[in-house]
Measured scan of single mutants.
Amino acid sequence: ENVVSAPMPGKVLRVLVRVGDRVRVGQGLLVLEAMKMENEIPSPRDGVVKRILVKEGEIVDTGQPLIELG
């Protein structure tokens, strides 16, 4: 699984990683606000951040690609 998608609609509050960062399974990639709750979106696997597909403040839909892992 190379693309991390939004599990719910919401607003991207914070991106916690940068392109080139090594991440571990379960590590927070970004914080999504949904229904006034902050939800940290975890990495599904170990890898390297290849691309960040959203910006802070952006509104996303369920299933929208957020981050690509390499």
Rank of each mutant, 00 (worst) to 15 (best):
Gly70Asn: 03
Gly28Tyr: 13
Ile41Glu: 03
Met8Glu: 03
Arg14Ile: 01
Gly10Cys: 14
Val17Trp: 10
Gln27Pro: 04
Arg18His: 10
Ser5Phe: 09
Lys36Asp: 12
Gln64Arg: 13
Ile59Gly: 11
Glu58Trp: 00
Glu1Val: 15
Leu30Tyr: 04
Val15Met: 00
Leu29Ala: 09
Val60Ser: 12
Gln64Ala: 08
Lys36Thr: 05
Arg22Val: 08
Leu66Asn: 02
Val4Cys: 14
Asn39Phe: 12
Lys11Ser: 06
Ser43Leu: 08
Glu33Tyr: 00
Gly47Lys: 14
Leu66Thr: 11
Val3Asn: 10
Val19Glu: 12
Arg18Ala: 07
Glu33Gln: 01
Asp21Val: 13
Asn2Trp: 06
Pro7Gln: 03
Arg18Cys: 14
Ile59Phe: 09
Pro44Gly: 07
Gly20Tyr: 13
Val54Glu: 10
Met8Ser: 03
Leu16Gly: 07
Arg22Cys: 13
Arg14Ala: 08
Ala6Trp: 01
Arg22Met: 06
Leu32Ser: 09
Val12Thr: 12
Met35Thr: 04
Asp21Lys: 13
Lys50Glu: 12
Gln64Gly: 02
Ile59His: 04
Ile67Gln: 04
Gly47Met: 05
Leu69Tyr: 07
Leu69Cys: 14
Arg45Cys: 14
Gln27Thr: 04
Lys55Val: 02
Ile52Trp: 09
Val12Lys: 15
Leu16Val: 08
Asp46Ala: 06
Leu32Glu: 08
Lys55Ile: 03
Thr62Glu: 05
Asp21Tyr: 14
Arg14Gly: 13
Gly47His: 14
Leu69Val: 02
Gly63Leu: 07
Glu1Pro: 14
Arg24Gly: 09
Glu56Val: 12
Leu32Gly: 05
Val48Phe: 10
Pro65Ser: 13
Gln64Ser: 07
Met37Ile: 06
Met37Asp: 12
Gly26Val: 08
Leu53Gly: 00
Leu53Thr: 08
Met35Leu: 10
Lys36Phe: 08
Val25Lys: 01
Val4Arg: 13
Leu69Trp: 05
Val15Arg: 07
Gly47Gln: 03
Val12Ala: 02
Leu53His: 07
Arg22Glu: 13
Val15Gln: 11
Asn2Phe: 13
Met35Phe: 00
Leu30Val: 06
Glu68Met: 15
Ala34Gln: 09
Arg14Val: 08
Ser43Lys: 15
Val4Trp: 13
Val15Tyr: 11
Met8Arg: 09
Leu32Arg: 14
Val54Leu: 00
Ile52Tyr: 00
Lys36Val: 05
Glu40Gln: 03
Met8Trp: 05
Asp21Cys: 14
Leu53Pro: 03
Val15Ala: 04
Val17Lys: 05
Gly57Thr: 04
Asn2Met: 03
Ile52Cys: 14
Val48Ser: 12
Val19Arg: 11
Leu29Pro: 15
Leu16Lys: 12
Asn39Gln: 02
Lys50Val: 11
Pro42His: 09
Met37Trp: 07
Val19Thr: 10
Glu40Ile: 08
Ser5Ile: 05
Val48Cys: 15
Ile59Tyr: 11
Val23Ser: 05
Val19Gly: 07
Leu32Ala: 02
Val49Ala: 00
Val4Thr: 12
Pro9Gln: 11
Gly70Asp: 06
Gly20Thr: 09
Val60Lys: 03
Leu66Val: 07
Val54Lys: 07
Arg51Tyr: 01
Gly28Val: 00
Pro44Asn: 04
Val12Gly: 14
Gly28Asn: 13
Gly20Ile: 05
Asp46His: 07
Ser43Gln: 05
Val17Cys: 14
Glu68Leu: 04
Leu53Trp: 04
Gly70Ser: 11
Leu29Gly: 00
Asp46Pro: 03
Leu69Arg: 14
Gly10Gln: 07
Glu58Ala: 12
Val25Asp: 12
Arg24His: 01
Gly26Tyr: 00
Ser43Ile: 10
Pro65Ile: 03
Asp21Pro: 11
Leu53Ile: 08
Val17Phe: 06
Gln27Cys: 14
Asp61Trp: 03
Ile52Leu: 09
Val4Pro: 09
Val25Phe: 07
Pro44Ser: 02
Leu13Ala: 03
Ser5His: 01
Pro44Leu: 06
Gly47Val: 13
Glu56Arg: 05
Leu16Cys: 14
Asn2Val: 08
Asn2Cys: 15
Lys55His: 08
Leu30Lys: 15
Leu66Asp: 15
Glu68Cys: 14
Ile67Asn: 04
Gln64Val: 00
Pro65Glu: 01
Lys36Arg: 05
Leu69Met: 12
Lys11Phe: 05
Ile52Ala: 03
Asn39Ile: 10
Thr62Cys: 14
Pro7Asp: 07
Lys50Trp: 02
Pro7Leu: 03
Asp21Trp: 14
Leu16Asn: 09
Pro42Lys: 10
Gly57Ile: 02
Val31Tyr: 08
Arg22Ile: 10
Pro7Ser: 05
Asp46Arg: 10
Gly63Trp: 03
Met8Pro: 14
Glu1Gln: 15
Val12Cys: 14
Val54Gln: 09
Arg14Met: 04
Val25Arg: 07
Ala6Arg: 09
